[in-house]
Structures are given as C-alpha cells and as structure tokens.
Amino acid sequence: MERMAFPGVDELTDLITPATSSHGLDIEGIKITRAGRKSVVAIKLDADARPDLDLLELVSQEISTLLDAAEERGEANFGAGYTLEVSTPGVDLPLTAPRHWRRNRHRLVQLTEDGQKSQWRIGALNEEQTAVILVTTRKKDLVVRELEFTNPVHAVVEVEFAKPPAAETELTGLEYDTAIQWREDNK
C-alpha cells in the first residue's frame, strides 16, 4: 500500500472530527508548519462553554491517538514526526460564523465596513442566525442596529479593560426582536 503524503487541512479535519465533535468542540483552525523534517500541527478549538485546560489536554490525547492510528493504517504520513499543539483561538480571531458572534455576546467588537472602522457591542442573534444586534453610544444616545451576515464586514473582538456601560449591556441582553422593537420605539 502506497503511503499518503503529509495530510492537508481537509484530511486532518476529517481525521480529528470524531474527537472534537464528541466533546462538543468546533474546529476553528488548523495550521501546518513544516520545520525541517518535523512539522507542527496547530489546532484551534472552541465551544460555547469555553474549553478548559483539562478538556484541551484530553482532546489533544484523543487527536494524537487518531493521527497515530491513521499513520499506522497507511492513511497518513507524518514523516519524521510532528508536534501537536491544541489550544483555543485568541481574541484576534475574526468573527466569521454566527457561533463566533453568539460566543462573544456583550463584548466590544471593531467592525470594518467599506474601509470605515467603528466599535459596537454584540447583542443577540436572530432565530435564523443570519443577523446580529449591535449597540453603541453616540453623543450620549444609544444606537441599535442589525448586521446581516450577508454584508461584507471584518469584525474582531476588542480587549476591554473598563467595565462596559450598563445601558449598552442592558440592550445587548435583550432578545433580537425585543432589541429591534426598542430601536423602533426610540427613534
């Protein structure tokens, strides 16, 4: 049997999904870095309830077992070996999926739309998970808008050291339709 080359991102995703999905974890990224004869496989995992170090260690062991078994079966070839790094994504992960917005509710986000930057606080997603409520304060007035995920936007969570304004977090705590109604009532 001919051995396969070092697996790519898609092959690695297929190989590790049984371990990640059994723990309710989403694969947020896989990066393969060749370092001479050895390689580094860095996997970023996340979930609604942020995984702790014990869970990451457990899943890392399960992933390692799956990768070693694939190599033994001849389905993958890791060459001289690999280093496996399993972690959560940092705050610089762009918000590209509805789950990213849901997991960062109440947090401050920087949007770049049409080259313009603005800061908003993340509210609720609609039931279809196709749009999200955003809240900000402009000239002491609260502003509520909805962002459709079909609109091209770059969004990254901002690290915030001060306590968020209570009026903003009160609005981000509202359900989607209630926040839309608040906006209509406060025009």
Rank of each mutant, 00 (worst) to 15 (best):
I122R: 08
T150V: 08
E113C: 10
K139G: 12
N77V: 09
P98A: 07
P94G: 12
V135F: 00
E160S: 03
V156S: 10
A124D: 14
L111G: 05
P98G: 03
W120Y: 04
L95K: 02
N126C: 15
A76W: 00
W101F: 14
V153S: 04
E57M: 05
W120G: 01
A131V: 14
K117R: 13
E71N: 02
G123Q: 08
L55I: 02
A42I: 14
A131F: 09
L53D: 02
R107A: 06
E85F: 04
G81F: 15
R145W: 05
I43E: 09
S87G: 13
G123C: 11
N126T: 14
E57Y: 10
V143I: 13
D52C: 03
P89A: 13
T83K: 02
D54E: 10
A76P: 00
V40A: 10
P98H: 14
A35Y: 07
E71K: 00
I63H: 00
A76L: 06
A42S: 13
V109K: 03
H106N: 12
G90R: 06
I133R: 00
F78G: 06
V40Y: 09
H100A: 02
S64E: 03
W120S: 01
V132F: 06
K117H: 05
L147G: 09
R102E: 13
R121L: 12
R103H: 11
V135H: 01
V135S: 00
V132I: 12
G81Q: 12
L67Q: 00
Q110M: 15
T96V: 07
L55N: 08
F149H: 11
E146Q: 15
L55C: 04
Y82I: 09
H154T: 12
K140L: 03
A35R: 12
E85W: 05
V153L: 11
A155N: 04
L56S: 09
A124H: 12
E85P: 08
K38W: 04
L45G: 07
Q110V: 15
W120F: 12
R73V: 04
